[in-house]
Amino acid sequence: MLSCKQATELMSQEQDRRLGLTERIGLRLHVLICDACSNYRRQMAFLRQACRRFGSGGAP
């Protein structure tokens, strides 16, 4: 079972590379039972969205 610390590493890396099957399954299981990491994952997606917007000059 992944720890939260390991899960956050994978949640970062999934933004930069395709995770392997074992990693994807491990992460999916972890996020299912861990609210904090599930929030973290949504926040990672939001960070990306904010950075893209910032990089395209779309920030007001």
Binding site: C4, K5, N39, R53, A59
Partner: peptide, 22 residues
């Protein structure tokens, strides 16, 4: 042991998309 410290556990962000307009 790799668990979030209790006070550091990420809480849900309320409507983050709305922040992008501010």
């Amino acid at each position: 042991d790799g668990h979030w410290r209790a006070e550091m556990r990420p809480a849900r962000w309320a409507d983050p998309e709305a922040s992008l307009e501010q």
